[in-house]
Every structure is written in structure tokens, then in C-alpha cells.
């Protein structure tokens, strides 16, 4: 029998167990699941190998039977957004995966080919040894360890067409989950964040609470919807639909720690190749949401993709909020009482 006080970190502000903010090694355990709960799973989306095919968007909608919508979430409507090949526009109640397209370019003076005009030596030229190739890399090599630089030179310009499949972050400290007054949003045994559609009464509090703008209310339904990381598939040991469909394994599903290790390797490989701007987003567990369950390898500033550069879960400041709420309430009681002191008039 635990006392209510243990839940009072929100009021008192002392939060040794990082119950409101900061890294949490076993968030599933902290939410009451038995010790033999499954390992926390999540997504690592490596946008450097994303080909913008949107198979993830379709696979997700087919599995979750989502309605068709246009770039503003208006059900059964169509709209060209003009945002390059992205006509989905944003994550929402009917689009739980959203592939972003950003066209970038810069001028560059065309470099001469590295080798002097060949042909000096007759017949076969000696070949500088190519980078070591791993013959025994299994047929299903999942990560593109040493793929070449990501900007493609195209004549006298270099063009980069960034593509990235955005998804709910399944944060360690999920503001949507914290603020949900009905307990519809909850932490599953896999450490993911899911809306229980049979409980949600559409109060909409989670929508402005999410620092990434993921969850949204479905217009003609009233309830809110977002990626469940295919919670029903996970209960049967299946990979989520988007991760199964992704042709280049840009979306990788697995245990979060394994994904984080693989992401670090991948980042190191890309930076060694001089791929500018490669960085991980949401991998660091000391960030504003305690690290994300679905994190990314990006090739430019997060805001270029429409992601917040330094998101912080609002629950971090909740203790301060309750303090001033309490003070305000006391003030009202005090002042109204003071209005009755003194001569009766």
C-alpha cells in the first residue's frame, strides 16, 4: 500500500526519482508494471536512407483503418500543399506517419575529377584500393554503415532533397500522458504511449500539451488519435506496420537500447564521411523529454523538418505552477476575508 504522497512530486517539486522530468532508466517499471515487463521498444528513423516513398504512411493507414484527409486533417478532402512532394502536411488524427520533403540547394564551383586525365598508362590502370568491403556482411545488412555523402552534386549546383518520416516520439516524459484527465493516455508494458479510444472523452488537453504537435482531435469523431506503435501488433510479437514496410529500413524497430547503440554507430560513420549536419534528435536521455522512444538521425536543424529545436515537457514546470496556483487561491481567500474586516457599512 503506497501512500498518496509519493504522487505528490507534482506539488512538492522534490523529484528524486525523476517522476516529472529527466532521464528514467526503466519508465515502464516506474509506471507500475511488474519487473518481468518487456524491454522498452521504439523507432530509430535514419532519414539519411529515407527515399520518401511514403510506404510507411500507407502501411500505417491500412493497418489502423484511418480515414483519408488533406493536409489540414479535413476528412475526405484532397489538397496539393505545394510543399515539394509532401501533401500530407503534418502528423494528425488521421496521419500517424508524415513524410516531410525539403528541397535545398547551394552553388559550388565544379571540382575537377580527383585523378589527372587518365590514359597515360596503357591498358588497365592500377586502382587505388577501395574502402574495405565486408564480404561476410549478412544479406540483410540493416544499416547503411558507410554510405557516401548525402548531398548529390548536380552540374554546377549541389542539391539536397531531405526526406524524413515523422512519427509520435513516445517520450519518456510524455506531456500528453501527464495532462490526460481521464487516464485514457497511458504507458504500455512496452514503454510506449497509447490512447485508449474507449476512455477518451475528447477534452483535447493533450493536443496543446504535446511539444512536437503530434496528437490531434479527429474532427467528426471528437476523440484524439495518434501512433500507438502498433500496440496490438506488439502484443502478438509483430513488428509495427510502418517498420515492416519501409523499403530501405530507414524506419528501424527494436529494443530502445539496441537502437540507440546502432544510431550512435551510424552517426559516427556519417560524420566520418563528412556528411554535414548529421545529428541525432531525441536520442539523448538528458533532453527536455527524458529521451524519446522514437528518435531520429537528421541531416539539418530540427526546425527545417518542422521539429522543435529544444522541446521540454511542460510537466517540468508543473510544481512551480501549482505553487503559484496555491498562492493565488490563498490570496483570494485572504483578500475577500479582509474585505469583511472593519466597520460594517
Amino acid at each position: 500500500m503506497t501512500t498518496i504522497s509519493s504522487a505528490s512530486a507534482a506539488f512538492t517539486g522534490e523529484d528524486p526519482g525523476n517522476r516529472l522530468f529527466g532521464p528514467v532508466p526503466d519508465v515502464t517499471g516506474d509506471r507500475g508494471y511488474a519487473d518481468d515487463h518487456p524491454a522498452r521498444v521504439g523507432f530509430f528513423t535514419d532519414t539519411s536512407v529515407c527515399i520518401g516513398c511514403k510506404a510507411c504512411e500507407v502501411a500505417c493507414k491500412e493497418w489502423n483503418l484511418l480515414p483519408m484527409d488533406d493536409a489540414e486533417g479535413t476528412v475526405d478532402a484532397l489538397g496539393l500543399t505545394g510543399a515539394s512532394y509532401d501533401n500530407t502536411g503534418m502528423l494528425g488524427a488521421n496521419s500517424w506517419r508524415h513524410v516531410a520533403f525539403v528541397e535545398q540547394s547551394r552553388a559550388v564551383d565544379l571540382p575537377m575529377p580527383t585523378v589527372g586525365l587518365p590514359g597515360a598508362a596503357g591498358g588497365q590502370r592500377p586502382l587505388e584500393d577501395p574502402p574495405v568491403v565486408h564480404p561476410q556482411v549478412p544479406a540483410s545488412a540493416t544499416t547503411a554503415e558507410q554510405s557516401a555523402p548525402l548531398q548529390t552534386s548536380s552540374g554546377d549546383r549541389e542539391i539536397r532533397w531531405l526526406m524524413s518520416s515523422d512519427v509520435c516520439k513516445h517520450c519518456t516524459h510524455a506531456a500528453c500522458l501527464d495532462v490526460c484527465p481521464t487516464g485514457s493516455l497511458f504507458r504500455t508494458e512496452f514503454g510506449t504511449v497509447v490512447v485508449q479510444e474507449d476512455i477518451c472523452n475528447g477534452c483535447g488537453y493533450c493536443v496543446p500539451a504535446c511539444p512536437y504537435g503530434v496528437i490531434d482531435q479527429r474532427q467528426d469523431d471528437g476523440r484524439v488519435f495518434k501512433c500507438t506503435l502498433c500496440y496490438d501488433r506488439l502484443t502478438d510479437g509483430l513488428q509495427p506496420a510502418c517498420a515492416s514496410a519501409c523499403p530501405t529500413e530507414s524506419i528501424q524497430f527494436g529494443d530502445l537500447d539496441a537502437l540507440q547503440a546502432r544510431a550512435d554507430e551510424r552517426l559516427a560513420a556519417l560524420q566520418a564521411k563528412g556528411v554535414e549536419g548529421a545529428r541525432l534528435y531525441g536520442r539523448d536521455e538528458t533532453d527536455g523529454v527524458g529521451g524519446a522512444g522514437a528518435f531520429f538521425l537528421l541531416l539539418d536543424e530540427p526546425e527545417v523538418y518542422g521539429l522543435p529545436p529544444d522541446p521540454v515537457v511542460t510537466t517540468r514546470d508543473l510544481p512551480a505552477m501549482w505553487k503559484s496556483v496555491g498562492a493565488g487561491a490563498a490570496m483570494v481567500l485572504g483578500l475577500v476575508a479582509s474585505a469583511f474586516v472593519g466597520r460594517r457599512r
Partner: peptide, 12 residues
């Protein structure tokens, strides 16, 4: 920004 779109979702 991403084509001027909101980063967070305005309250519903």
C-alpha cells in the same frame, strides 16, 4: 520552419 507550418498543435 517547415513551410511556415505550426510546430505544436494549437489547442482544440
Amino acid at each position: 520552419s517547415y513551410y511556415g507550418r505550426p510546430v505544436i498543435k494549437p489547442p482544440v
